[in-house]
Computed example of a mutant assay.
Amino acid sequence: MLTATPLYAGLITLLFLWLSFRVVGSRRSQKISVGDGGDALVMQRMRAQANCAEYAPLGIILLALAELQGMPVWLVHVFGLMLLAGRVVHAYGFSVTPQVFKARVWGMYLTIAMLAFMALANIFHALF
């Protein structure tokens, strides 16, 4: 039974929705129906949302699989916090103007580290 993963899935989904609402708001204010319409702010907000959509689902899936395989719940929380913090820090760095490049980099470090550790943990558990 999953007890920790749903917390991070829910929080990351709220982050994704916030990023989505920012895209919708920018499109509405610029009267852009599809795409970015050549507007730099709309493009920036779309990429922040898309980046979350590209990385978060895989992290949540890996987290859930590890928890289902019996990873101690405290470790699930450690890796869940890594993913959540990585996505929040990256979204912040990407979404503000001017962008905060160090936040983007640290957000990706946390996200990539979480994905790598979780991938290896799942592979190790499956083989042994």
Rank of each mutant, 00 (worst) to 15 (best):
G37M: 07
H90G: 07
M1G: 12
K31R: 15
F101I: 15
A126K: 04
M71F: 14
F101R: 15
F124D: 03
G35F: 00
M1H: 13
A85W: 03
A119L: 15
L17N: 03
S33P: 03
I60E: 09
S29M: 11
L68Y: 10
G38S: 08
L75E: 12
R45M: 02
A40C: 10
A48W: 01
L84N: 02
F79R: 12
A121Q: 14
S26W: 10
I123L: 11
L120S: 11
D39F: 00
T3D: 08
L11K: 04
L7T: 11
R27H: 01
Y55T: 09
R28K: 12
P57A: 04
L58R: 11
V42R: 08
T97M: 14
A64D: 06
G70E: 02
I60K: 13
G25D: 08
I60N: 01
A116R: 10
L41D: 12
V34H: 06
P98G: 00
G93A: 01
S33M: 11
A119N: 11
A48Y: 01
V24G: 01
A4P: 05
V96T: 00
V73I: 13
Y8Q: 06
Y92E: 01
W18P: 00
C52L: 15
R45V: 11
T13L: 10
A126G: 05
M71P: 03
Q49H: 13
K102D: 14
Q69Y: 07
A85P: 04
V73T: 15
G107L: 10
I60D: 01
R47N: 06
F128K: 14
L19R: 00
E54M: 09
Q30L: 05
C52W: 13
